Amino acid sequence: MTEDEVLAEFRASQALLEGHFLLSSGRHSAHYLQCARVLMHPDRAGRLAIALANKLPRELRKEIDKVVSPAMGGIIIGHELGRALAVEAMFVERPTGTFEFRRGFALDEGDRVLLVEDVVTTGKSSREAIDAIREAGGHVVAAAALVDRSGGEADLGVPFHPLIEISFPTYAEDELPPELASSPAIKPGSRA
C-alpha cells in the first residue's frame, strides 16, 4: 500500500481533521489523525494491518511471539496486526496512570513482542508501554505504527517501522502561530 493509498483511507473515513488540536503529547497542531475513525471499518482496518505487516522485515515477522498495544488508540490496529501475523494480541492500560497488563493478559518470560501504536508523535507513550512489557518479562524486538508524526525524531529504543510518515508541524503552547492562537484547542484524543 503506497502512502497515497494510506492517506486515501484516512480521507475516505473522514479521519484526517483540520482545525486547532491539543495532542496527547501536549503539543498543538492544525491537523489531527483520528485513527479510531480509519479503523472503525473492519475491512479497512484489516487492509491497513496487512500493509503494516508487509512493511516489517521478513526476519522480524518470523520472530514475533506476541503483539502488545497501549490502550486505547493502539487496541484495534494491534488486534488486526496480531491477526495479520497470526500471533496473540493484547494491550496494556493505565488504570492508575502507569501502563500495566490487566484482564488476564500476561507474557511468558522472554516473549518476543512487537509494540504496536496507531500514531507516534513524541514516542512517550510507546516508551512507557515498552517499559511495562519489559517489566512483565517480555523482550520488545521492534515497534510499529500506522503513522509516524515525529518527523523521524521519536527514539523508542527499538527499531521502529511506521506504515507512513506524516510531518504536520506541532507547536508548544508558547510557540503557537497566530492562526492557532486565535482559536480554542480541541482535544479529540481519548486521554484527559
Rank of each mutant, 00 (worst) to 15 (best):
D108R: 15
G73F: 09
L52S: 00
I75V: 14
F91A: 09
H79K: 05
I64L: 14
T98A: 15
V67H: 05
A12S: 13
G78A: 02
I76T: 08
L23D: 07
G46F: 01
K124C: 01
E9M: 10
R44H: 08
I50M: 10
R112A: 04
S125I: 07
S13T: 15
H41C: 12
L115C: 02
A89V: 06
E117S: 01
A36K: 12
R102F: 00
A49M: 14
R27D: 08
D65C: 08
R47G: 00
V87Q: 07
V116I: 02
S25W: 14
V87T: 13
R103D: 05
H79F: 12
E93F: 12
T122E: 03
A15C: 06
I50A: 01
V68I: 07
F99E: 07
R112M: 05
G19V: 01
S25A: 09
L85Y: 05
D111K: 12
S125E: 06
D43H: 08
G19P: 13
F99V: 09
P57G: 12
F10P: 05
K124A: 14
S69Q: 10
E117W: 09
H31R: 14
L56C: 03
E80N: 02
E18S: 13
H20D: 10
E93Q: 13
D65N: 11
E80K: 11
L33N: 04
G104D: 07
V120T: 01
F99N: 10
P70H: 09
I75K: 05
N54T: 07
F99L: 06
P95W: 04
A53F: 10
A89L: 06
R47V: 14
E88Y: 01
M40V: 05
F91K: 09
S25D: 06
L115M: 12
L17W: 12
A51M: 15
T96L: 07
R61H: 09
L22K: 06
R127L: 15
M90S: 04
G123A: 05
K66Q: 12
L39S: 08
Q14Y: 08
F105M: 05
G26T: 05
V119L: 07
S13G: 05
L114D: 02
G110V: 02
I50C: 00
A86L: 11
S24L: 06
A36C: 03
R94G: 09
R61P: 02
T96F: 05
S25Y: 15
V116S: 03
F21T: 04
L7D: 02
D65V: 10
E117G: 06
A86P: 00
Y32L: 10
I50Y: 02
I77P: 02
E18L: 00
G26L: 11
A89N: 08
F105L: 04
S13Y: 03
G78M: 03
F101E: 09
K124G: 04
V113C: 03
A71Q: 07
C35P: 03
A12P: 00
S126Y: 01
A15P: 00
R27E: 08
A86T: 12
A89S: 09
R44G: 09
R11C: 06
L23R: 06
G26W: 10
F105C: 04
G26A: 11
F91V: 10
E109D: 10
V6W: 10
E117C: 00
S69I: 11
L48N: 14
H31A: 14
